[in-house]
Nucleic acid binder design. Structure first.
Length: 234
DNA sequence: AATTACTCCAACCGCTATTAC
DNA sequence: AGTAATAGCGGTTGGAGTAAT
């Protein structure tokens, strides 16, 4: 390792470190976290940098409470896949596996425990997938592709579903302490990307940008590459 | 006001999978 | 094909903040 002899920092990140990391991660499109850690001058492991970026600094991260709709989706997919947090997170743009995992531990598990103790109140959501893939005309809603919905690996939902999108109307996004700075990048980056879609009003946080292929696990990754490292959510 | 209990979540650790050589 | 390096994932922990007593 390049850090031999050097002491790697651990523990909470400082704002200066975050700025260094965001700058480096933006410059270096390849997700070579060890290189990013080394070249940035951060005394952190690549692993630590990756974790910090994915869970905190990445653009379009949503912070704050998990909405009822999101909870519903988490419940559905957890029932389907179990503790596959990263996979579940891919179905909830802006949420991290860590966040979902934490949420499950603190909220859902407790709820299930309560149910198992006898006072069963079937808050269990209908398995009907249409509940999870409803459409609405809300202009501020997230809209994202689920064209990989029936992929062999993630075999859920109605076969042959023609639904192209579903929306989470109450989602907010980019609420991290550095959201303002990160938000500044986005128009600059997206202006170069004709494939990028703009959803919402375009005024402030109601506006969001996403690539059509953004959320498809199986999609052609060239779309992601074309968007640059900032858009590499997976 | 002080203490305790609880919740939340950022961050670390260990393991596995993937990639590069 | 084998090995090492790196990335990714899921489990766990510890500290900060808050509510309850």
């Amino acid at each position: 390792m390049a850090y031999q002899g050097d002491k790697l920092r651990k523990g909470p990140w400082h704002e200066e470190e975050d700025e260094l990391l965001t700058a480096s991660a933006t410059l270096l499109e390849e997700r070579k976290w060890d290189s990013i850690a080394r070249l940035s001058g951060l005394m952190r492991s690549g692993k630590s940098c990756r974790m910090r970026w994915l869970n905190y600094l990445r653009p379009n991260l949503k912070r704050g409470h998990i909405s009822a709709e999101e909870e519903q989706i988490i419940t559905q997919f957890h029932g389907q896949w179990g503790n596959k947090w990263a996979r579940i997170a891919r179905r909830l743009p802006g949420r991290t596996d860590n966040e979902i995992k934490n949420y499950w531990r603190t909220h859902m598990r407790k709820e299930i425990q309560t149910q198992e103790e006898g006072n069963f109140q079937p808050k269990v959501y209908s398995a009907k997938p249409e509940l999870l893939y409803q459409n609405s005309d809300s202009t501020s809603a997230w809209k994202y592709s689920i064209r990989d919905y029936n992929s062999a690996d993630d075999n859920i939902g109605p076969a042959g579903s023609s639904l192209e999108h579903y929306e989470l109307s109450s989602l907010t996004h980019m609420n991290s302490p550095y959201e303002t700075r990160q938000y500044d990048w986005i128009p600059k980056l997206s202006s170069d990307q004709s494939q990028t879609e703009v959803h919402g009003e375009g005024n402030g946080l109601d506006c969001c940008f996403c690539d059509p292929a953004w959320n498809s696990e199986d999609s052609d990754t060239s779309a992601l590459v074309s968007l640059g490292s900032l858009w590499d959510m997976n």
